[in-house]
Design a protein around this nucleic acid. Sequence first.
DNA 1: ATCTCAAGTCAACATAGTTGACATGAGGCG
DNA 2: CGCCTCATGTCAACTATGTTGACTTGAGAT
Lengths: 155, 155
Amino acid sequence: MAKTSQAAGLHRASLAKLHELDTALELMYYGWRGMTLEADAYLAKQGLSRPHHRILYVVARRPDIAIGALIEILGISKQALNRPLNLLLERKLLTSKRAPEQHRSKLLRLTEAGRRIERRASDHERQVLREAFARVGASGAAGWIGVMEAIADNN
Amino acid sequence: MAKTSQAAGLHRASLAKLHELDTALELMYYGWRGMTLEADAYLAKQGLSRPHHRILYVVARRPDIAIGALIEILGISKQALNRPLNLLLERKLLTSKRAPEQHRSKLLRLTEAGRRIERRASDHERQVLREAFARVGASGAAGWIGVMEAIADNN
DNA sequence: ATCTCAAGTCAACATAGTTGACATGAGGCG
DNA sequence: CGCCTCATGTCAACTATGTTGACTTGAGAT
C-alpha cells in the first residue's frame, strides 16, 4: 500500500504546458486519482486493495459468476486472481458453491459483509462523481459522459 | 509489462448497474485505460513504461529540475526513482549535470531523443483526447473539463 | 575540521502481475 | 468401466513497481 497521505502524483499546476492538451491530459490523471483516493484509503483500512475491490465490484453485479468468467472480465490470469480471491473467501466476504447441474464451475456470490464493503468502497468513488456533477450541472455532466464514452470506445 | 493485447480490464457494458452512478464510475475506468492504452503500447515497444514516461513528462516541462524536486512531484521515494531514472540516463534520453553554483543538486534535462519519445508517448494520449473533444464539440469539452477539475480538486 | 545536505546505493520486503507445469475432480461418452 | 475434456486449484520462478531502513559519498557552509 502506498502512503495514503500527501501528493503521490504529479503536483498539480506546477508544470509548464508544452501543448494545448497537456491540461486535459493532467486532468485525466488527477481525475482518476481523485476518484479512487478515498476508496483506496477505505480499502486499505480493511486490509484490502484495488484488485479486491475489482473482484467485489464485478461479483456484486454478476451474482453466481463462475471463476472463468470472472478471470475474463478482470483480464488477469487465474494465478493472479488466486491470492486476492482466496483472501476474500477466507474473510467470508464472498462464498463459492458448486452449481446445481453444472458441477464443473464454482459460482461466486457476495456475503452480506462483502456487499457492505463493496458498497462502501464504491460509494466513495460515486460520491466524488456526484459532487462533481452537482457542481457543473446537468449539461456539464452530459458533456463529461459524451467525452468519456468517446475515449472509452477508442479501444 | 502486461500483455498489451485483449481486454485487460472490465469488459464494458457486461455488468448490471446497482447504482445510478455505476456507469460514470466505469466510464472513468475505461476512460483512463482508453487514454493510456496506445501510449503504453508505444512505450513498451521502446522498452519503457509508465514510470519512465512520468519522469520524461515532468522533466520536459521543468528543464533543469533537481532530483529532489522530481521525487516530490512524482510522489515516490528516491529508491523507487533510482532504477527508471538510471535507465533513462543510460539510454541517453536525459542528462544530468551539476549546477554552476549549487553543486549539491544535479539538474536534469531531456536529450533530443528523450524529447522525441516524451512527445510521441504524450501525443498518443493527447490524440485520444483530441478526437473525443472533436466528437462532442466545445460545450461538451467544457463540461468535461469542469467535471474533471471538480474531481481533481477533491483532493 | 566538522557539519549538513543532496544524492546514490544496498538489502529486505510487499504487492500485483506474468508463464509454465502439474494435480484434482466432475461430466460426457464409447 | 475407462478414458477424455474441462474448470478449477496450486506450485515455482520470474518481472516490475513500489516501500523502509541503513549507510556512503561528495560538495558547501561554518
